[in-house]
Design a protein around this nucleic acid. Structure first.
Lengths: 225, 225
DNA sequence: TTAAAATGATAGTAAAGCTATCATAAATAA
DNA sequence: TTATTTATGATAGCTTTACTATCATTTTAA
């Protein structure tokens, strides 16, 4: 059985839906390759046009600017990950195992998902680690938020917050703990690889150490170690 | 008694030391005002020159580019904060009270410090919250790290890591917990004001709620609630 | 008081970040 | 099938950003 997974994106994020045309899919595909390779700062629509075999003008027909494209990619990732989480924790009865599974899914390297042909989830995961925060750390975060650009991220955190309460209904900070888990899953990864003295994982540099740290952090808070 | 505080900065961060000239101090002062007002993305040396009453060329004599200036400001802030912490926790015998004090200093609004004439610490604190991560979330983080640009941040985290161990010598993740505290002190603040559904502080929006969350997070982990 | 250093004034260049126009190709509706 | 809308390509151009260079002038230090 071959299924094709399609992520429903906020229409305000694009001018023309990139999922509906060959060119649009090429733009998404090569934007991931290019941002992963050179970073978001040196990423331009001109370079993307060359890589995608099209013109700058054509890219502007899909996305207003490169920041919107970044938000699109990050939002796509969070939507996809929420789906992965719901799929992989489906029917898990024990809330503690379920939350542990989520921490593992958030923290460990993502394999490329063949059900989404033009998105390399593994590279996108690394982009979200290094560039994801830039999608909201702007002066226009308020307006972007009004347009619901961060809904996938907020939905995911809400789901995790619910799982936290399922483990400990009396816990007072489920939302903040959820956003802490998500942010730290990524920041500790970035630090481990780039500023290792900020972590306790500098020697082995293994993701499962981050998982152990987050498990310890979360489940001592929830009194369910 | 009037003391003047001077932060010793890494010489590789600038071409000419801004602390040694009137123009240099003006550049620092107005860069803080301008980045605070319009954000780092729309901040340019041309605008900064106009605000500082000088020319673009003169600014380039102090800083190679605007990213270096951002790193300078952020590094200055962490150095200054580490000094504040050492000053304000000096002679505190109890490691738990000391760590709690540090969490409060990290999290709550900073008052402008008159011993540093041309730096508005309160505005700089807000810049570090919204723009600080951009100083290291780049493709050249490795080279910048080799030049020790992030030493003040790492030193501060190391100090906090030591305080964590003083509370609980058997705790396994002092460095990661330290960087988690520092990052979350800022991210939860940013979320509270801009994406409040990611926190549990959206109603009252008070910094002391973040302090309470971090205290809970840290001291349940350290078994010293 | 003279030389060195810092700043100002001005110019210029390459690239980034767009917008506009028109021709052509492909899809679709009449 | 033909007409027509729609998508893309090709090209041009404009403003701003991010620098670099030069030379005159002012300030400072020996």
């Amino acid at each position: 059985m071959k299924v094709q997974l399609r992520v429903n994106m906020n229409e305000a994020l694009f001018l023309r839906n990139p999922e509906e045309t060959d060119l649009g899919k090429k733009i998404i595909k090569h934007s991931i390759l290019l941002i992963h390779k050179n970073g978001f700062e040196s990423f331009t629509f001109k370079k993307l046009a060359e890589e995608s075999g099209t013109t700058e003008a054509s890219i502007y027909r899909y996305f207003e600017n490169k920041h919107r494209l970044l938000i699109y990619l990050v939002a796509w990732y969070w939507s996809w990950l929420e789906y992965q989480i719901s799929f992989q924790t489906n029917n898990m009865a024990d809330p503690v195992s379920r939350l542990k599974k989520v921490i593992r899914l958030l923290t460990t390297t993502v394999e490329d998902d063949d059900t989404t042909a033009y998105v390399n989830e593994s590279l996108l995961h690394q982009i979200v680690i290094s560039e994801g925060s830039k999608s909201f750390l702007t002066k226009h975060v308020g307006e972007d938020n009004k347009l619901h650009f961060f809904k996938p991220y907020k939905d995911l955190c809400a789901v995790i917050g619910g799982m936290i309460l399922a483990c400990d209904p009396s816990y007072k900070y489920p939302k903040s703990l959820a956003s802490t888990i998500v942010e730290m899953a990524h920041f500790q990864n970035f630090f481990m690889h780039n500023l290792p003295s900020l972590t306790d994982f500098g020697v082995k540099k293994e993701e499962k150490e981050i998982v152990a740290f987050l498990n310890d952090l979360v489940f001592t808070s929830l009194n369910k170690g």
